[in-house]
Design a protein around this nucleic acid. Structure first.
Lengths: 193, 193
DNA sequence: AGACGGTTAGACATTGATTGTCCATCTGTC
DNA sequence: GACAGATGGACAATCAATGTCTAACCGTCT
């Protein structure tokens, strides 16, 4: 990692809590520069706009999240617990940091407006990874999809769709972890032979 | 309390957490109107400016605080515990609500800029009330000021000054309650015969 | 029904803040 | 001394917020 990347990382580290505190719109480049301990001019040396800075932060968070997800799926335990770990990792990296923010909804919205590509790509990769794990489990007979008339990809897509719905409900006051665990119990039951 | 006052009260109740969350500058009348569940136009029917709204909130908080302070000083216990209760009440009403805000310093600053009169009047009244309590305690022989060469008013003023300093330190990361209690132990020791 | 007070969304000019750019200047390193 | 990077300040352009106003709306009263 070169010096310029290190600086960018430090800026993103400093910017995250500011965005969490005030949301995207109410966060100014002056705020971020102050939090990063540099001048506004120096900030523009690393990121040419507030939008680009946000996109970089989103991209980094998604990349991190996917690394954690891959590690979780490569871990120990049965399919279900590995999927649970993977989803927990995904949420920990991409949702939990904003859970406490009064502007969580605005931030997710901004993310979809500015980083739609990265976000959708990560979601697609997550589906693919879960589908792969399910396919493996199917091959070893650990699960069955007979009663569901569905492919592993279908099931993986449903899991992610449910996660999205639970995320949105959380913005409206629901408990992310609790709802997630309930859904995974449901999943375990549905896929058991 | 007439209908218009009730509305104003509701607005101030709604506005407080918004100010706490975003500070004075980053809070817009639109934010407050939304929090109060009304249109911006209706908000201006009750308060003719953001500054006036803030002043009204400050005035209400100070009035409330002084009522609690008077009640505390009229309560049971020795002078010290009554003073402790009074100061605790003052802090609970006027400082604690902002303790969690990242913009606490800006809010206190804004308060001094917009509501200096009310703030100083409340502080002066607090000094007078404490001085009165000390004078009574002096008359009953519960405390002595001989070694201090000071009047009750002097001592009351020092107490308030210390409270102010402790408040500012709290903004810088200190613990308000802990520091306050330490100071009051110190006071008890210094005034005992 | 009509008059009424209170509310609303929206438009509006004005002011103020933010953005992104630029430059002269400074600082530490080679 | 040359160099790269950082700084504060200035800048025009854009955007947001303030405070004001109006036409329309709604429930209440008569």
């Amino acid at each position: 990692m070169n010096q310029s990347d290190q600086k960018s990382e430090a800026i993103l580290d400093a910017a995250l809590p500011v965005f969490v505190r005030h949301g995207f719109r109410k966060t100014s480049m002056t705020d971020i520069a102050r939090a990063a301990g540099m001048s506004r001019a120096a900030l523009y040396l690393s990121f040419s706009s507030k939008e680009e800075l946000f996109r970089a932060g989103s991209a980094r968070a998604h990349a991190r999240a996917m690394r954690k997800v891959e590690a979780a799926l490569a871990g120990d335990g049965d399919v279900f617990s590995r999927i649970e770990m993977a989803i927990a990792a995904f949420q920990r990296e991409l949702i939990a940091p904003f859970a406490g923010s009064g502007d969580a909804a605005e931030l997710f919205e901004t993310n979809m407006a500015l980083s739609r590509d990265v976000t959708l790509a990560a979601r697609a990769e997550l589906v693919a990874l879960l589908a792969q794990a399910l396919t493996n489990a199917l091959a070893t007979g650990a699960i069955t999809l007979d009663a569901l008339h569905a492919t592993p990809v279908d099931v993986a897509a449903i899991i992610i769709a449910a996660m999205e719905g639970i995320k949105d409900a959380q913005v409206a006051g629901h408990d992310l972890l609790e709802d997630t665990r309930l859904f995974l119990r449901l999943l375990r039951k549905a896929l058991s032979r």
